[in-house]
């Protein structure tokens, strides 16, 4: 039932002849194959292996490479997130949890904690695309392996407070300092949307009992040039230091 229409190519049958011609073509085909493998064997320049940890200096990921979610902070150490929770709604697997608070000075909703669970994130980029203020970014930092899954819960913001636009309007540094307070690495339980993770009696926002294994100190929102978020698990921090 070979339908022969135009714009079709039909598979050629395998040609077979007598004993000796088969032997000759067979041997020839084998030798040709050996020629190809030898071609690569004899040319070390064709080797494509990347010696991964050794080539860190030259290894460059593409700009759009999607790994670690980050909330870039500008040169003053402030971000643009308004805690609108659109990213939270866009996330298909509830990996983002926005904890907001009433601003002490402004009395408006502002970001307290931006909690991102890398352990359930699929790096689908939906949050980044959905963000109306373009304040999220998937960074190319892919070396995120840790031994403890709980270290994969990140708090992406370094401070609780309003956006940089609001903060920069206030010219007096004293006044400005009242509007935000530093936030550190988050290490408590994270409820999934609609349901709580069993075993965690603590609520978000309440002060967490600091775990021995979890990193304690957090960088204060000093003028940082690195766009990466502060919330870096200890193991990752060390890895990064070696680079």
């Amino acid at each position: 039932m070979v339908v022969s229409e135009s714009n079709q190519v039909v598979a050629p049958p395998i040609q077979r002849g007598g004993f000796f011609s088969n032997l000759a073509t067979g041997l020839k085909s084998l030798l040709k194959g050996m020629g190809i493998t030898f071609h690569y064997f004899s040319r070390p320049s064709t080797v494509v292996t990347q010696q991964y940890p050794e080539n860190r200096a030259t290894l460059k990921m593409f700009d759009r490479y999607r790994m670690r979610l980050s909330l870039p902070h500008d040169e003053n150490g402030f971000h643009k997130c308004t805690a609108c929770t659109i990213c939270e709604q866009a996330c298909p697997n509830s990996s983002i949890r926005i904890v907001s608070r009433k601003g002490a000075v402004t009395n408006k909703t502002e970001l307290d904690r931006f909690i991102w669970r890398m352990d359930s994130c699929t790096f689908c980029n939906a949050c980044v695309v959905a963000c109306p203020f373009s304040c999220l970014k998937m960074s190319g930092d892919f070396e995120c392996s840790v031994y403890d899954k709980s270290l994969l819960v990140f708090n992406l913001t370094r401070y609780a407070g309003p956006t940089s636009t609001v903060l920069m309007k206030v010219t007096d540094p004293q006044e400005r300092a009242k509007m935000w307070e530093p936030r550190d690495v988050y290490s408590g339980p994270v409820p999934l949307r609609g349901t709580a993770v069993p075993g965690g009696g603590r609520t978000l926002g309440a002060p967490e009992p600091v775990k021995a294994s979890a990193p304690v100190a957090a960088p204060t929102p000093a003028p940082a040039t690195a766009p990466a978020a502060s919330a870096t698990a200890l193991a990752v921090e060390e890895e990064g230091g070696k680079k």
Partner: peptide
């Protein structure tokens, strides 16, 4: 090593 170089690899390094 031979296998690696047939396959454009480096093999054990």
């Amino acid at each position: 090593k031979v296998a690696a170089h047939f396959q454009c690899r480096l093999g054990p390094m």
